[in-house]
Design a protein around this nucleic acid. Structure first.
Lengths: 217, 217, 217, 217
DNA sequence: GATGAATGAGTATTCATTCAT
DNA sequence: TATGAATGAATACTCATTCAT
């Protein structure tokens, strides 16, 4: 009813604004997206936009949180499943990678714009991210206790390492490259899981000569 | 020693501008940094800034290239050294991590702002990055040929994975955390190198039950 | 006892809105106060606010009139009392000053915002103010006729002078200063009443040298 | 050169902006004046306006300070003249009143808009006003010491009283009234100076009956 | 080599007000 | 009697960039 266009505008204002913002932020970045564009895409007035959201930043936060909430929910299910740690670890990694493969563009926003949020808003997001991170790290700690995950590397470093690798795929992945999204995902998961194993399981591959800096082991 | 350019570095305008821009871009991001701030920090006028650089983007490119050039130079030395691949791989990873530990903030820019460059400028940077990436990847390919690096994961994916993990440390590393920069670096290198090994070297750790999604192996 | 209207004051929306608006207008000025703030402070919705009042200006007028009505009522009682003019003059001045001491902030609005009202609304207020002013001035004219108030200064100027002095106390009075509200009030009244006396009662104090501009006497 | 209009635009941008702002603020109030209007009136672009002034408030402060500086300068000359206090007091009052008569509208701004300034800006103005006030009060204190000004009323109250009376003439003075600006001014000065005299000089006029509230002496 | 005044198109945000329910 | 979603026009302010000197 708002617009004069023929496109039916289903759903309440708030929903449509979130949807429009998600698309635009993902497509052209947060900074390059204007409130005018969002309002037009959502077929509401700029006034309505500010009726529902305090600011553009607030809107960004809401977009984030919706995305994060889903991911966190999925992780919670996997982490608390009735299965051995190594199985759950694998599933968590695979699910994250799969989820990202499916929500590729929206998640790009997340990686690129968070540093633009001011303290107030950033802390909300950070809290949500922390929750995800903690659950993931919990799995690794559990694995260390069970002896299936190496203990010479901090669980936190492992979690951060994997999460940021995966969260930055958008940086280099090319849809027209030799590998599909899912192939890349599978390979990253393999890489990660294998790097995780306790050192005792490995037949060590030592650098031959004297190490220039910190030598491994 | 910042630049490789022939311009004398006698505290002249150009040098100071690059230095100021590097700091500001690193600290608050490219988008959030204004030319005014750069000019003030460099103690030059805005006019002078445009005397030396064509545009803000041009400035960003210059900041990048100086940074990248150094890193690429170091990698070239390591990659072409007379040592076994595994040794050179280790050294390359360790050096990158060490270099980042030392140039922590400046390198943040690199991760966050590249998508903002327009075609003209982006291609220059991309070429430089590609050069680094290719050298690194070359090492992995060499390793695969020598049988010390797994072949079931694309060398490109391995390179991108490690490079983006390392390039995003700034996202989560806390100076006041339990681990020092160098400890974190060492652990990341270990994680990476161990994930790299050919699968035959491993005593496999199989998920116990039936896999919910793509099972490993 | 705030309003003279017939509306029952059972904490209904209207009363609460007036009260909230009075506080806010006094505290931050009419212009700087938003309808949103008023609605929130009155714990009603913005819709309800517009149910009771035609516009923000209408609300301002209502705030004024309540305030002025009380003051005008008190003045009427004093002016028509059975007492010599000088007594009634003194009482009028003292009462105004006392009243202001008690309703310090609300009356601030009055001084600052009247010029913002449009013709329609302004004339209502102006009529009310005029009524107050006229009564006060009537007292002075009466005093002039009785020979207890100087006639070389227009009664209107005297009235305006005192009224605006008193109406601007809020500009400079500091609760934590050396004098209390009532001390300041008493001194202003004395100053005013003494300035009022016929010149013949005075032993003139002449400027010694030749006057640079209009010399007194 | 800036505009395309035929009106010659003499003077630098900054001067013209101040002049235009002064006129507009005086004519329609600070809040009702838009930066667009100011820029157009000054025949500069809005950008130029912000080149010279940090904000609209900053501009207001500059307008104020120019006005205040002149008034303060004049007062300083009078106060330090080689003449008896009563003469200098008279001259100061007369000069202020005369100055206001001549700069009627610009000074209106000052009275109406100061409460809109935020802390930072307000304090600059307040400091300037204080300086004026202090000099004026100094004259009264001197008068008290010399025995020509009453001591039962605080010099500060006298100064504030007169200054705010005079500063609010714009509230009620009508160009088309029976008295001219200068007549009104002269009368206010007389009223003030006579209210100032030591009480001993007066043949007291006592309220006849018992006082309803605080009786004078 | 360097200045600094000027530009102008663009941005997020505000806010009194309306109206279907 | 009251709601609250929606409006739309207006506003202060930003900022990369230019150019005469």
């Amino acid at each position: 009813m708002t617009g004069a266009s023929g496109t039916p505008a289903r759903g309440g204002g708030r929903e449509r604004i979130i949807a429009a913002a998600t698309d635009l932020f993902a497509g052209q970045g947060y900074e390059a997206t204007t409130t005018r564009q969002i309002a037009e895409a959502a077929q509401v007035t700029k006034g309505a936009l500010y009726h529902w959201f305090d600011s553009k930043q607030h809107l960004l936060v809401c977009v984030y949180r919706d995305l994060l909430a889903e991911q966190t929910g999925r992780l919670a299910v996997i982490a608390s499943a009735d299965a051995p740690v190594e199985r759950r670890l694998h599933d968590a990694a695979a699910d994250l990678v799969g989820h990202i493969a499916d929500h590729f563009e929206p998640l790009t926003v997340w990686a690129r714009s968070m540093h633009l949020l001011d303290g107030e808003h950033a802390s909300h997001i950070r809290a949500d991210r922390r929750r995800y991170h903690e659950t993931f790290r919990g799995l690794l700690v559990e694995g260390q206790a069970a002896g299936v995950v190496r203990t010479d590397v901090s669980a936190s470093v492992m979690a951060h390492g994997f999460l940021s690798t995966v969260g930055n795929i958008h940086t280099w992945f090319r849809e027209d490259g030799p590998l599909s999204r899912h192939e890349v995902g599978t390979q990253l998961v393999a890489l990660f899981l294998d790097g995780l194993r306790p050192r005792e399981e490995l037949i060590p591959v030592r650098p031959a000569g004297p190490a220039s800096s910190a030598p491994p082991a």
